[in-house]
Amino acid sequence: MTDAWNPTRVHQLESLLTDRDHRILQHLERFRALTTRQLQRLHFPSTPHGPHATVPTATRLANRVLLRLEAHGFIARIQRRVGGPARGSAATTWHLAATGERLLRAQRGEPNRRRYITPSQTFLAHTLAVAEVAIALRECEMRGEIDILELDTEPSCWRPFQGPLGLVTLKSDLFVVIANAEVEAHVFVEVDRDTEHLPAVIRKCHTYQQYRQTGTEQARSDVFPAVLWITPDAERTRKLTASIRADRDLPGDLFTTCEADKALDALISFLTPTPHNRKEVSP
């Protein structure tokens, strides 16, 4: 394993990668897992006037690149299927393999290798759902509709703070700051897969409220972010919304809930002036 940190070995591996290849490895490290379709949308976008006029053309190119990276040991398939609209090779799920991970760590001067553990079906579905939110925002930015000022994934988006009983870490799924010409919006994103009982979700809401009361985030950016709960369906949204409203200790202006297919619209809706999680952009 020591040759992985040898500068000559690192240079040899780097010579096998294009700039786009390197960005693919970075995204797999950042999101932990992505499907071929998600990678295609990030790195091989299909636009009428772009380099890839159709989705099938873009997908074929994405497949060729991913198979080459797999052959060199940079990435590997996760041998688990996750439900969704994609089928065939587009539904293949990828993660960073040993060579890819060692290379990225060597480039940052990090000697330790992380041990890979095959994720559970539940964990993988949640991971891909969180990535889907981020990718939808990136596509929105590519269309020129918004600017993404920050997009932090786990664990970069976590917030440690001193709670009533000691140190607490608020573990959101994503933290984003998006903007248009007039306003920027700060949002913590939680992707709920209906795998936890509602009392556990409400306890997480209380953690957000406790963190809000510390004033730490407000000192950092002058506003406290909105918290967007993204649920799998309308029934879960209804139940979660009702539970939050029924809790007198939770402020009604802090939490928003929506179904997964409305997540992008919900995020964009924060880009309106006045409420607590928005800041007006200076001209």
Rank of each mutant, 00 (worst) to 15 (best):
T2E: 15
R9N: 09
V10I: 15
L16Y: 07
L17F: 11
D19A: 14
H22D: 12
I24Y: 07
H27A: 15
T36V: 06
Q40R: 12
S46P: 05
H49S: 11
V55E: 14
P56T: 03
T57I: 13
L66Y: 02
L69M: 01
R87D: 12
A90N: 09
A97T: 07
T99A: 14
T99R: 13
L103A: 14
R108A: 13
G109S: 09
R114Y: 07
V130H: 00
E141G: 09
E154I: 04
S156T: 14
W158N: 08
P160F: 05
P160H: 09
F161G: 04
G163V: 02
G166C: 13
L167A: 10
V168C: 10
T169H: 08
E182D: 15
V183A: 01
H186L: 09
V189R: 00
D192Y: 05
R203C: 08
T207K: 10
Q209D: 14
R212A: 14
Q213V: 07
T214M: 08
G215V: 00
Q218C: 00
Q218H: 03
A219W: 06
R220K: 12
S221A: 08
W229D: 00
I230E: 03
T231I: 03
D233F: 06
R236V: 13
T237I: 02
T241I: 04
A242L: 03
D253R: 06
F255L: 09
E259F: 00
A260P: 00
D261I: 00
K262Q: 08
A266D: 09
L267M: 13
P275T: 02
N277W: 09
S282G: 13
